[in-house]
């Protein structure tokens, strides 16, 4: 089960919503990352300071997919963000 964590977006990350997608820029490495609509929504909630459990609950309510799948995808997404030094938790 996904632990309830507070996520801190790195100060060198810049994001821009483009329609349903979001693009992230790691200004330190110059690398861009594209987020899917579900990941974009999760990112938006992170920017509002929402914790992981609440992000999960909102995604489950807003997207038509099995809860277990959303939870797994969110966990993978958060680990990738940390690996790329885009967020800390």
């Amino acid at each position: 089960m996904l632990a309830d964590m507070h996520l801190v977006i790195s100060p060198h990350v810049f994001s821009q919503r483009l329609g349903e997608e979001t693009v992230l820029l790691n200004a330190d490495s110059g690398a861009y990352f594209g987020l899917t609509p579900v990941a974009s929504r999760a990112w938006e909630l992170m920017q509002e300071g929402v914790g992981t459990r609440e992000i999960l609950a909102k995604l489950e309510a807003e997207f038509d997919a099995p809860s277990a799948q959303i939870e797994q995808d969110l966990e993978v997404f958060l680990l990738k963000l940390r690996e790329k030094e885009l967020v800390a938790f």
């Binding site: 821009q16 483009l18 820029l25």
Partner: peptide, 17 residues
Amino acid sequence: ARESSFLAMAQVAALAQ
């Protein structure tokens, strides 16, 4: 628009720096 946004993001990163 997406390509233009990439440049804008790079500019904002530079602006902050």
